[in-house]
């Protein structure tokens, strides 16, 4: 069995990232789109931490990951507020029906 190294973690993070993108692109429900965004952020965090572990930069990567988590919390709050507002305005949360910008 090969020893688990940097690449293994990177592969996991890439897979998470791809699935996040997939969720963003394909899901109709805005909340699932948000879940995709969270997946992407998690992928980025895994990268940060993995590089910190295998690189030689001190703990800055951990700090970055913490900042990302904080910002993700803020983002989730705001995004849900927006979703609620959209729901109140248009009575739907399906993004493909939200295209009034087109007209």
């Amino acid at each position: 069995m090969i020893e688990v190294g940097l690449n293994h973690f990177l592969v996991v993070s890439t897979l998470l990232f791809s699935m996040g993108i997939y969720a963003i692109v394909t899901r109709k429900n805005a909340i699932q789109v948000l879940m995709g965004v969270e997946l992407i952020l998690n992928a980025a965090n895994i990268n940060f931490i993995a590089f910190t572990r295998f690189g030689n930069f001190g703990l800055q990567g951990h700090l970055m990951a913490l900042f990302v988590i904080v910002l993700a919390a803020a983002e989730a709050a705001i995004a849900l507020a927006i979703v609620l507002n959209i729901y109140k305005t248009l009575s739907t949360v399906n993004i493909d029906e939200v295209d009034s910008l087109k007209d």
Binding site: N45, I49, A50, T52, R53, H62, L66, I69, V70, A72
Partner: peptide, 19 residues
Amino acid sequence: GIYVLLGADFVAIVQLIVY
């Protein structure tokens, strides 16, 4: 769990609490 494997104990806990 992956964070813990990578030696990031604090970040792992924060991940659990916040996420």
